[in-house]
Write a protein that binds this DNA or RNA. Structure first.
Ligand code: FES
Ligand code: FES
Lengths: 147, 147
DNA sequence: TCTAATCGTAACTACATAAGTTACATGAAA
DNA sequence: TTTCATGTAACTTATGTAGTTACGATTAGA
């Protein structure tokens, strides 16, 4: 399957919205992301449902952040997107009769469950404010070097 | 996306082959796995290329394990399958110009690289012999309980 | 040698899901 | 009323495993 890049997309969009003065339109965001305005609306619409962003129609409308960057974690964003599966690999049969397959599933599940816990743990600890701060660091760094 | 269950499949097949006396045919394995003989050949063929199994044609032919179970790790099997991607989630753009997207990618990459390291680490430590032993434990347990 | 069993492989379909696109309705501002 | 912008349905595209059909190649054994 094709990889799900929606988390990456919304993070990118949210940080640009944070840097921007007023609301940003789907059109503008789509150009930033190199995609289509409808894709932006579809994806950002999921964040609207959980109150992370708001949207306004009509002239001077667009998308705005509606939450404190320090309180929004990557885990919350992942949840807002519907908790898409992290892994592209899985068991052939989740509830096997066969003891052989049960042994196989147990070994794989043990590993993947631990990896998922690690991912969720780290996602819980990273906020949008952290990413914004990292961007600022990179920006300052570029100005220092770029003359 | 449909999940890749080939690692699960080959583990299941290999353990059944370990329990069996002679070679097992694609037909038999397919019935075990609840799939098609061609799928078995296609997948097991990848293991043959790295010498983990051998196949023989003709009557009394089929698949046999060609390695010491104690030396074959899940990591080697994953490699033999072509190192399919672990994650169903990824960056929108792997080499962005934009500093915002670089900050986003850095955060996600950091997390996913650590999770992948964990997976590979654990996969390196689990051998087919471990799974066979776990199966034996489960088998003994069932006999003890099942009357 | 003939037959049947098996693998090897090509080619096609089925499936799942995000992404991309087109089209149009809805609503708000000036 | 016009224009800008979102909301959303519907359809297409892309990607890769899984499933299926078909047939060729090889080998054991009668
Ligand atoms: S794309 Fe990050 S520049 Fe808007
Ligand atoms: S399926 Fe495990 S029983 Fe063969």
């Amino acid at each position: 399957m094709k990889r799900d890049s929606r988390l990456s997309s919304v993070l990118h969009a949210l940080l640009h919205m944070h840097e921007a003065d007023g609301p940003m339109t789907s059109e503008t965001l789509a150009k930033c992301l190199g995609t289509n305005p409808v894709v932006v609306r579809r994806t950002m619409g999921l964040l609207r449902k959980t109150g992370i962003v708001t949207s306004d129609r009509g002239p001077a409308g667009g998308w705005r952040i509606a939450a404190d960057l320090r309180t929004v974690t990557l885990r919350q964003l992942h949840a807002a997107l519907g908790e898409p599966a992290f892994f592209a690999i899985g068991n052939r049969n989740e509830t096997p009769e066969c003891l052989v397959e049960q042994a196989v599933n147990a070994a794989l599940d043990d590993t993947f469950i631990k990896a998922e816990a690690l991912l969720l743990e780290r996602f819980s600890q990273i906020t949008l404010a952290d990413l914004a701060a990292d961007f600022s660091r990179r920006y300052a760094e570029r100005r220092r070097q770029g003359a």
